[in-house]
Amino acid sequence: MLQDYLFPETVNEAVSFLQDHEGQARIIAGGTDLMLDIPEGKIETNYLVDISRIPELREITMKDDLIYIGAAVTHNQVASSELIQKNAAALAQAAGYVGSHQIRNAGTVVGNVCNAQPAADAAVALVALGATAEITTPAGQEYVPVEKMYAGVGRSTIDSTSQLVTRVSFPVAQKNQGTAFVRLHQRNALALPMLNVAVMVTLENGRFLWARICMAPVGPGPMRTLGAEEVLKGAEITPEVIEKAAQAVLEHANPRDSALRGSKEYRTSVLPVLVRRALGQAVVDAGGPSN
């Protein structure tokens, strides 16, 4: 039963409160998922520690070639940030697809990661961007790739009763880099994705230098597809290469049958199309040729 709702003013204050209450206190940011889970009894807590008013968590900043997104930054702030649009189009697009305008005004990108839903749009984009999370505990700070933050379906490696993800960061985009996010859904708002794909490419002299491809929900969390990335490495930018990489993602993809969001067979069949389209867009974003 909830006893109190607090607004710590600093990260340290938040984290020490968690420590003092040993599992009885929990971090809340936007609360758009948490406030559904608590009434349903999925989560029980005595104290909610609201981090949305801690100044340094409310910012999108750039420092030393890294872009930082604080834990209290909402989806809409990310989607409309010129810095993000320029450096990480995939993330701006992904954040713009989440839920609805009202949800995006409240829900945060970091919360999207911590909630650990398999197809969390922002998380998929962050994995493609190679983002790292900064986790603050009473012992200090740890840095974990977003990719490694999934412990299972709907389970995060983050324990929000003792840890606070303070921000996520990823490198500023180089001129020859591009990203893209594509999403398959049954309607344009208020819908979870049937599939989503984020990619990041780095081009050089008409070739892919390297690429990251992330897709969901084809496993417990956003899934990298190393085989397909390997296909692209050093390869010439041609429709055939892109198609080959797109087909190669199927080695790693294991979408399940969902009565709500499509059969395994259907999703397996259209996944390469999405990957192909995402790669095409990312190449253009990176200043490469459009096909």
Binding site: Y5, M35, Q102
Partner: peptide, 15 residues
């Protein structure tokens, strides 16, 4: 200044 769903906002957030 932002449109939000008041059914998802803990009242304390309005503080």
């Amino acid at each position: 200044g932002e449109a939000v769903n008041s059914c998802l906002v803990p009242a304390m957030k309005a503080s």
